[in-house]
Design a protein around this nucleic acid. Structure first.
Length: 309
DNA sequence: AACCGGGACAACCGCTCACAT
DNA sequence: AATGTGAGCGGTTGTCCCGGT
């Protein structure tokens, strides 16, 4: 679908914002609230495109923005969160009140990337364990959601490590002949899936119909979601998180068993994903196109077909 | 004083997605 | 179902500033 650029009109100003423009934008948003950015420039008397106004407001003029240099605590938080989610700046920013994704992204690209490069040049032999270390540290972050993310992600990495071990053992290389595969062969298949389709395959599965199905069928999950009281307007981060990590509550005292529960949830999810995959394959003979969202996720893992045949 | 290079940060660009029509 | 729109996201670019030569 063709999309007309928002800023191709002649005479629309670009570049740095003047103080008068900032004042016009702030006055308008304070009087009318943000929203309808396309019409805003005209209504506010600005010679800018709506997108430019939105960016200026969200990245610079918003009253709740925390200016100034990043603290050591924020620095560490970014480091740890980046180890978990990668370049998902909006997710990282969601855990750091007062900081924008743009600000964090710039900080990462200018300060932290350089630091990491220097660290790697120094020849850190423990590089492989850095992610887990960062995650362990993240478990003590002052941001509840970040704690949940770290705990769940730690469990996920441990589970994946187990799956890798299982998949490399001779016993699990035997042929799986039915959709009701055993837990260990599910695990092996899941490890194959990750190896074939990339580590984010699990996140994508979680966001697919398979994940929906799992969430819907897991009574435990429903209880967990209710207990965590996920807000109706979930953050983008919460939208992709399993219940154990999408909580948003401050109930840190009750988190003792969360890692174990998360690992169990994750294992159950993997088993269901593989079963679902096998069922679909059996039912459709590989014609996954009838289920586009699942197909998108699973088609990449087509080399997984063989264990089920 | 003039020039240059690099760092820091604001702003833009291109893309995707959800939703409305 | 096709298309248009608004909004958000991540990557990239542009500009300013500052220190070194």
């Amino acid at each position: 679908m063709g999309r007309t650029p928002c800023c191709d009109s002649k005479g629309i100003k670009k570049g740095p914002w003047a103080p008068e423009e900032d004042k016009l934008l702030v006055d308008y948003v304070q009087a009318n609230g943000p929203g309808n950015w396309r019409m805003l420039p005209k209504l506010a008397g600005l010679n800018r495109c709506g997108k430019s106004c939105r960016l200026r407001w969200t990245n610079y003029l918003r009253p709740d923005i925390k200016r100034g240099p990043f603290t050591a605590e924020e620095h560490n938080s970014i480091l740890q969160l980046h180890a978990i989610v990668g370049n998902k700046w909006s997710m990282i920013a969601a855990q750091m009140p007062g900081r924008t994704d743009n600000e964090i992204k710039n900080y990462w690209n200018t300060h932290m990337k350089k630091q990491l490069r220097q660290d790697s040049l120094a020849g850190d032999a423990a590089a492989a364990s850095q992610q887990l270390t960062a995650m362990a540290a993240a478990a003590s972050l002052p941001f509840p959601a970040a704690r949940h993310m770290a705990q769940w992600e730690t469990a996920r990495l441990e589970a994946e490590a187990r799956l890798s071990l299982l998949s490399s053992s001779p016993a699990t290389t035997t042929t799986v002949t039915s959709a009701t595969a055993s837990s260990s062969s599910c695990a092996a298949a899941a490890a194959d899936l990750a190896a074939a389709a990339g580590p984010d395959i699990f996140l994508r599965l979680w966001n697919s119909e398979v994940g929906d199905s799992f969430r819907g069928s897991s009574a435990q999950g429903v209880v967990a979601e209710a207990a965590h009281g996920r807000p109706a307007t979930a953050s983008p981060a919460a939208a992709v998180m399993p219940p154990a990590m999408a909580g948003g509550d401050d109930d840190s005292a009750a988190s003792t068993n969360e890692g174990t529960e998360a690992a169990d949830d994750y294992q159950a999810f993997l088993e269901m994903a593989v079963e679902e995959f096998a069922l679909l394959h059996g039912r459709l003979g590989g014609a996954f196109s009838a289920f586009p969202p699942v197909a998108d996720v699973l088609a990449e893992a087509s080399c997984l077909f063989s264990p089920f045949e």
